[in-house]
Structures are given as C-alpha cells and as structure tokens.
Write a protein that binds this DNA or RNA. Structure first.
Lengths: 212, 212
DNA sequence: ACCGCGATGTATCGGACCGATACATCGCAC
DNA sequence: GTGCGATGTATCGGTCCGATACATCGCGGT
C-alpha cells in the first residue's frame, strides 16, 4: 500500500523523505494517522532496488561555488522512473482483495484522479460489497447473539453498523455519479473541468447531511 | 492489543484457539475484520510463557474409558490464571497513547463492562481529544490546501471529516451518560451497579439516530 | 553573544500483526 | 464411498509501527 502511495505522489513531483511523509499525511489523513519513517525509508530503499525510483543526493548546484561552507547535509531526493510509472499503473489497475479493506481502498481512492473510470467503478463496487458483508455480519451479531454480549459491546456494534450503512450510502452516491456522466477529474489535466463553481460541479455526492 | 482481548475473553470462559478467534471476531467485529491465526497462536504462546494463561490438551475425560477410538485430536484449551487476571486489570487501567487509536480504543471499549467508571471516563475523553485533533487536521487540509488536491482526495477528506464529527458526537453522548449517574437511559434495568456479573452492565446511550 | 528549542531531516531496530499456506479430522449430503 | 465445507492447530515471510538516535537550521529570549 505504501508502495502505491509513494509511486503516486512522486508522479506529481520529486521529493525527499520528510516532504514525502508530509504530503502522504495530507493526502491520506482521512484514513491513516501518519506514515512512520520505520516503514517509509525501508520502502523507499525497496523501490529503489526494484528500479521504480531513483535517489539522488541533493547537490547545492555548482558544487564548485560553495565548497564546504553551510555544507547542506543529506536531503536525498527521490524521483520516479518510467518503470515506476508503469508499476503504478499496474498496481492501480489490478485489484486484489486488499484493495477493498479500509487502508487499501483509501489509498486507491486517493489516486482516483489517475485512475480510469472503469477501474474506479470496479473498485467502488468491490468496496461496497465488502462493506455490505461487514454490515450483514454486524446485523447478525446484533440480532442473534445480542443477549450474549454486554451493553457496551452492543453499543460498539451499533456504532459500527451505523458507520457501515453510512459508507454504503456514500459509495452508492459515488457509483451513481461515476455511472451517469463523467466524474470529477483532476483540474490539472484539464479534462472535463474548466470552472468549478456552479457548472456541473465535480464534487461527488452531496453527503453533507446536516444535523437537525 | 491482542493480548488484552485474549485475556478479557478468557476471563469469561476457557477456550481453544478456533473458538477464541470466533468470539474475538464477534466481539470486535465492528473494529477489525478477523484476527489472523498468524497473530493468535504466537500471542497465545507468549501469554503462556509469561504465565498469564495455561494451556491444556483436551482430554476426553476418563482417558481410561475410550482409549484410542475416535482419538480426539489436538484441541488445546487455554485458561486464564490469577496472574493473567491481574495483568488484564493492569492493562485496562493504564492508558498509553495506543489506547486512543482506532483499534486500541475499540478493544478497550469492548471490555468496558469490566472497567471501572473513572477509567471509562478517562478513556472516552482521551479518545474524544484524539478524534478532535484528527478532525482539526482534516479541516485544515480542506481549508488551506484545498486547491492543491484533486476532487477525489477532497471528497475522501470530507467523508473522513464527517466520520470524525459523528464520532465526537457519539463520544459526547457516552461521556454525558457516564457522568450523570451510571445507568443511562435505555431499557429500565432497575439497579445500575448493584449486581456484578455479565448480566446487566450500565447500558450506554441511545445513539440510534434513525434515518428517514 | 549565547543558548535552547522546535522544525527539518535521515536512519535503524524490535515487535505486532497479517495473508498465504499446510495439514488433519469430522459430519453430512450426493 | 466420496467429496466438501466446517473445525482445528500451526508456521513463515513480509509489511508496518513506535521508539530511538543523531545532525542541522533559524528564531526568540536573556
């Protein structure tokens, strides 16, 4: 999963580790707390060994100019390679079971702007199916095994069930949006989106159900 | 986390691995998919080594009786020890930072029936604080960095923000419930904390906001 | 003039947990 | 009588996290 996220982010710009982590946190903040360096750096090493990215020590340009003064330590900048871009496309397109778990889905979704519509649809539907299964499991427990569990456990299940139902509804909206008419596209690619004010708003479903 | 969950479950009854996994899945179904045997068995071994639990091969009672016929393979039954119960109480009471992340909180909450009220309150408030921080982070991104992100990523953040707000509200209810007397509002169970077993722990709040 | 301190930055290590896999038994339906 | 799904125990490689260590930079306080 980290591999996919890194490849996706480096496609926007070369970055060094610290920066990468910040961008990762900003992009995936909704689904995971913060990527640990304990996973980030080994993964970067792995990607480099595989040839998907290259790492280059940041040179302060014209090394002749400023020899050792303010020596500009470290700062390894990572750049994605052509093979890396291929790898990213492949990872995006092929959907394993892990594509539909919480983290996997979140990462895939975060890069939907780089994903073709058919794949987007496939992933959204796969996710919906998975959440529906979880929902049924919770309903079963709440129905059949309710008296075996204490009130707190039951409340936890209810809260989880609620979250499932809500997510299914959210996914339904996204799927409907994806099917009828085109979807919100990355403004940078210029496709299907000129202004984003009130004309064919690219924002997916209006899931803003305000509290009464 | 697994350690805590196993200790908690074995306090209700001795079990063998397969059973333990099923109960674990039923109890924690709202927060994690299913515990892997790849974590369960090593953890059981670890707990046994530490003396928190004992394992005993299931004997078909009166081994003399039925010697080798239908030989009743395997089936190692795990039982919690007195030290294990102490360990459980200690783990429940002491709250580290991991107590407030998604999984940690879920597990702690699932055993609130075995947790004293002061600790419950502390955990609920810690969780609320953590979620509020996550919420602020998401608001920041949606406010400040909105134009740097594509529509899908933004939608993901919005959905996450929505979930945060919802959980904070849920926690508020639970906290209020926990504070004002012990036994909340649900079904009239009469005595709140009089009888101690697994019979009728204080039922948490009615967060059942039905959808029209 | 000096110092601390928080942000920036790279990196490793042990441990928790998962997914795949292997293997054996039981009851039951075909 | 045979396959097949549920029950049941167990290991292995790999991903990721949390703690930790260490170094530099710019800034404000004294």
């Amino acid at each position: 999963m980290l591999e996919l996220a890194i490849l996706g982010l480096l496609q926007e710009a070369p970055m060094h580790g610290y920066e990468l982590r910040k961008e990762l946190t900003a992009k995936l903040g909704a689904i995971r707390a913060a990527i640990s360096y304990g996973s980030l750096y080994p993964t970067l090493r792995r990607l480099q060994a595989a040839g998907w990215i290259t790492e280059a020590a940041e040179t302060p340009a014209t090394a002749e100019e400023v020899p050792a003064l303010t020596s500009r330590r470290g700062r390894v900048v990572y750049t994605i390679t052509a093979e890396g871009k291929e790898r990213f496309a492949q990872l995006i397109a092929q959907a394993g079971p892990e594509t539909y778990d919480d983290t996997g889905f979140g990462v895939h979704f975060a890069f939907f702007a780089r994903t073709d519509q058919a794949t987007r649809l496939r992933i959204l539907e796969g996710r919906r199916r998975k959440i529906e299964e979880r929902r049924e499991g919770l309903r079963d427990v709440l129905g059949r095994a309710a008296e075996r569990l204490d009130a707190y456990t039951l409340e936890l299940q209810r809260h989880g069930l609620d979250a499932c139902e809500r997510e299914v509804r959210w996914l339904e909206e996204l799927i409907a949006n994806e099917r009828s008419g085109r979807a919100p596209a990355d403004p940078r690619t210029g496709t299907a989106d000129g202004r984003r004010d009130n004309d064919s708003p690219p924002t997916p479903g209006t899931s803003r159900t305000e509290r009464p």
